[in-house]
Design a protein around this nucleic acid. Structure first.
Lengths: 334, 334
DNA sequence: TTTTTCAATGCAAGGGTTTTCAAAAAACGT
DNA sequence: ACGTTTTTTGAAAACCCTTGCATTGAAAAA
């Protein structure tokens, strides 16, 4: 089963490889009868073009690369599916690379394996962004504020989200509010916290450093963080918060579980809110009060901007999308 | 910023392109001093090899393609992350293609864009499997029974899982058991149902056709299916089951929500069980009784088998992994 | 018929890399 | 200093495809 190339087809059909190429790509009108002969040869030899040769010659892959460190988690995975759909609509194939290895990522992008790149915050540093930009490689960044960087990105307004939901809690009468952070330094997490602090500040409330727990945006990690917080607060007589703002819904769920485990009822003993409004949030017990994250809109915007970039447009401004408060039952008035 | 090629580096360093290639790939010992000159030139020109050229020449991409119709859902996404990890361990890059377009999938595989392929059940038909096999393209199928097809696959023993959990319900005293199916014809779903029926049969219990609901393996769809079932059962005076076996945990969650909505308590009024044991199952309310699906083991097996295939081994037997019953609180004795 | 026009095809270059094999350079031995 | 061996390097082919331009052949016009 030696691989059959365009030459074999040409020989079989008694034409030149140029003609085969043209016939197969519907270019330069080839005579219907010869085209048929070529198609027959293709069928007979079971030919399938080597896409690598094609890409090398044409200089394009018709592919959008999505670079992420993980596809797990409802937020990620829904966004990715949405990105795949929109990419397809624009005639590109979405190609997901799962890796945290910056060098590898940059190499595959620079190696021209993709025509454009979509990059998650978790995966690149600022210098990489500047680099890609300086190389004129079409790229759009997700969940990462790049306004200072002359690049295009689409971000959820995490600051406002944190601010809004904290105001909501404050209006409910809460004064001691703790935050369960995501991965260290991740943009969304930090912005949400800034929003929380700002709301607190405007109401003359304080945020002691030990009110920042490390939840890693994961259920398990949030669970552990809350558990050890509760224990250490007993030991060190920290004041217990009346509400937790979790960095995302997943960590809110982890937090609630930990609280239950320690005998605290949500929302009766303590309130917990999250961000994203993932699928299960609505059906969780208790249904999660959270800020809805417009995933589909985000995906559409990102792909559209990237396509325009690949089409040669320049200086496309970044886009900021706002969330929406969903009042459900995991937070109640004090 | 014209793209710089290996020729530019060669010129800059005053050597031939052959030497550059060798220096960069650590092959055929290049004299240290020239190598250094080349490295300097690379840095100066900011050269990054064109991976497409490389792939075309070398005939290999060092890439494993994963073909799936979606990355959403805890089962999928966790499995995919695990696959990415194991691929990397074996020196391959995992490349996820999200598409349901069979032709496109087959084309990218045949087009040599990947060295080996991992394919989910949802994505290929039997004829495709036979075709890939006949072309000697390394491929491993996930969640699809292929024992009759002389191909290698790794599957979860869904029949046994269905059988086991149904026996468990029967021992709890249940006699009327309904099933919430996944996508029509999906292997796992059908096998689970067969297991259910087998257990029922062995205890002289029956499974009326209207006990098969269409839940699509999704929360929403399962919710709707259960709702309309409850309504139509009222109209047509179908007998209500005392237990639901949902095709997976996600649809179990959807089902429970629908039941609650209609005023039925789980597990007091009716029992619901699922499959997979996804993250939230344990923390759901009520905690889900389910069959644990060994995702990591599955991923490891799949990648290892694929790598062996790519290394030229033949006739690697398929692997079947067994689940484990997790007794929690969504099912109770009658 | 001869010339013109135009549709259909083929030649050959080129995209960026790796690799074989032979040639050049360096090192060694005497 | 010379021949021999070993280490380093380079020329060119190959991987498979697309495309600009030249060529062919036949139909249209003269």
């Amino acid at each position: 089963m030696a691989k059959v190339t365009i030459r074999d087809v040409a020989r079989e059909a008694g034409v030149s490889i140029a003609t085969v190429s043209k016939a197969l790509n519907n270019v330069n009108v080839v005579k219907p009868s010869t085209k048929q002969r070529i198609l027959d040869a293709v069928k007979k030899l079971d030919y399938s073009p080597n896409l690598i040769g094609k890409q090398l010659k044409s200089g394009s892959t018709q592919t959008i690369g999505l670079f992420t460190s993980s596809v797990t988690g409802p937020y990620f995975s829904m966004l990715i599916d949405a990105l795949a759909n929109f990419s397809e609509k624009h005639g590109y194939e979405l190609n997901v690379f799962i890796s945290s290895d910056r060098e590898k990522i940059i190499n595959t992008i620079r190696g021209r394996l993709v025509d454009g790149a979509l990059l998650f915050d978790t995966v690149v540093a600022n210098e990489d962004i500047e680099f890609l930009n300086s190389e004129h490689i079409s790229s759009v960044f997700l969940d990462r504020k790049t306004s200072h960087l002359n690049t295009t990105s689409v971000v959820f307004d995490s600051f406002k989200a944190g601010y809004d939901i904290t105001n909501y809690l404050i209006n409910l009468g809460h004064k001691q509010i703790a935050y369960i952070a995501g991965y260290k330094g991740v943009y969304d997490s930090e912005q949400r916290l800034l929003g929380v602090k700002q709301a607190l500040f405007e109401h003359g409330l304080s945020f002691p450093p030990y009110y920042r727990l490390e939840g890693m945006f994961e259920q398990e990690a949030a669970y552990n963080a809350v558990l050890s917080f509760l224990r250490s607060s007993r030991v060190q007589s920290y004041e217990l918060p009346t509400a937790f703002v979790a960095g995302n819904d997943i960590s809110a769920i982890g937090a609630i579980k930990a609280l239950k485990h320690e005998g605290l009822m949500v929302p009766d003993d303590i309130s917990v809110v999250g961000f994203d409004d993932i699928d299960v949030s609505e059906y969780f017990n208790p249904p999660l009060t959270t800020i809805h994250n417009p995933i589909v809109a985000q995906a559409r915007a990102a792909v559209e901007m990237l396509v325009r970039l690949m089409d040669g447009e320049h200086d496309i401004p970044s886009k900021v999308l706002e969330g929406e408060l969903k009042m459900r039952q995991s937070a109640k008035s004090l």
